[in-house]
Design a protein around this nucleic acid. Structure first.
Lengths: 237, 237
DNA sequence: TAGTGGTCTAGACCACAGA
DNA sequence: CTGTGGTCTAGACCACTAT
């Protein structure tokens, strides 16, 4: 290395990532500016070009840099940053909060698919799927209300499972890995029934998470999770 | 290559990623199983070990594999999958939906920080920050209600900006890149004032996004965004 | 102690798009 | 056409940890 022999964050690529990030944050390199090319940075930091490439790709994935062949690398003008959150297994989520987990199956049946769910899954309305409704508790307090449709054709073996003592979330996570998922967050006023099951008042605002997953056979499951009032789902960059 | 000369997804690493993903989804490799080590896979696919490493690291980041030195690589037992969503610039979000964007500044002042916001920012209650309230419209319909506190010490130059014609979101994105952000989603019943500004009814459930950002100086801004009823924020894996 | 993943290197060839 | 990033290779050394 040249005089740039401060302690690297962890590896050389990580150090370069942090150093480039710092130059952007401190406006040494301003939005829209072209930054030196990989070969130049490799020379400056005394590393191989592949190392610089790895560092810059990370920042490009984060949205801080725009990289194009021939045109070079520029500091993003409108950095569209991304945030990540983990899709929790409800039991682990509750236990991580130091509470004891329990759940109650309200209904399990084979039913014809209502129109809205059919659209979500890309199946025909009226097709018969498995329909589950359950409540998940932390220290006996209702935490989450689950309303789930499962496509048995995508999950061989599901027909024989009894979810009274096993939670569908975990069974699916272990037995039906998915290729693709779609999630949406929204808000909805609690209905009379939701309110009773979640031990709250009708019209109370609830955070709703809808999730649909697919594997190579087709749609696996569509679930609507309604959270107890006051719960906030968090994410970081 | 050996007989494995089907069309690669795009590069060799991408092809290996997809092939390993397929083996997991189709249960050729089951949850908890140890998979062949990098050297063995490199031999099988006829590539360098670094290429296998890149492919497997991607799957480990996704949560599908657990990798540990000496212990090898295993298919994750409880795959904690991650989802990503992009943090939108409200104007781009509205224009991407084919609507014309406008916004209205309701108030801009220097005010003492209330306790809840102080906690969110890690500053002292009563400290004087810049407080903004604004509504963002798509085709003249209210879309989002913004309530923002900005720490002028972290953003030199902010004191001179007039946000009547410039939207704070964009100014900050362009002028105050952040190092770290925290986001939470929650739901809340509209108050009388919220309802009026969003052109809806009091008690209507609203999706709330709270976001706080930091740079190397300290906290930059904390903002509470309330969305018009019916809006759903989506994410994918 | 030894087997595994983590990282880096020097070099190469290629794909893309700007001039 | 040519400069830039995208990707791959063969090899090396290191860091961790299971045994």
């Amino acid at each position: 290395m040249t005089e740039r022999d401060t302690i690297p964050a962890s590896g050389k690529a990580a150090y370069i990532t942090e150093e480039v990030r710092r130059r952007i944050i401190e406006k040494e390199w301003r939005q829209g500016d072209r930054i030196p090319d990989e070969a130049a940075l490799a020379a400056e930091f005394g590393v191989a070009r592949a190392t610089v490439n790895k560092a810059l790709q990370l920042l490009a994935d984060e949205g801080l840099l725009d990289r194009r062949r021939r045109a070079g690398t520029r500091v993003a003008v409108n950095p569209v940053r991304k945030a990540t959150f983990s899709i929790p297994i409800v039991r682990e989520q509750i236990e991580a909060a130091g509470k004891s987990y329990s759940h109650r199956l309200i209904s399990q049946s084979r039913s014809p698919l209502p129109a809205r769910r059919a659209e979500q899954l890309g199946l025909s309305p009226g097709e018969v799927l498995i329909h589950l409704r359950a409540v998940h508790y932390g220290d006996r307090q209702p935490f989450q209300l689950e309303d789930r449709w499962i496509n048995p054709r995508a999950v061989p073996g599901i027909e024989e499972v009894d979810f009274h003592h096993l939670n569908a979330n975990e069974w699916l996570v272990r037995n039906a890995p998915y290729l693709r998922a779609e999630l949406t967050f929204s808000a909805s006023n609690a209905g009379v029934r939701d309110a009773r099951l979640l031990d709250t008042e009708p019209e109370q605002a609830l955070l709703i998470l809808n999730r649909t997953t697919w594997n190579d056979i087709g749609p696996i499951t569509a679930v609507r999770l309604a959270f107890h009032p006051g719960y906030a789902m968090s994410a970081t960059t």
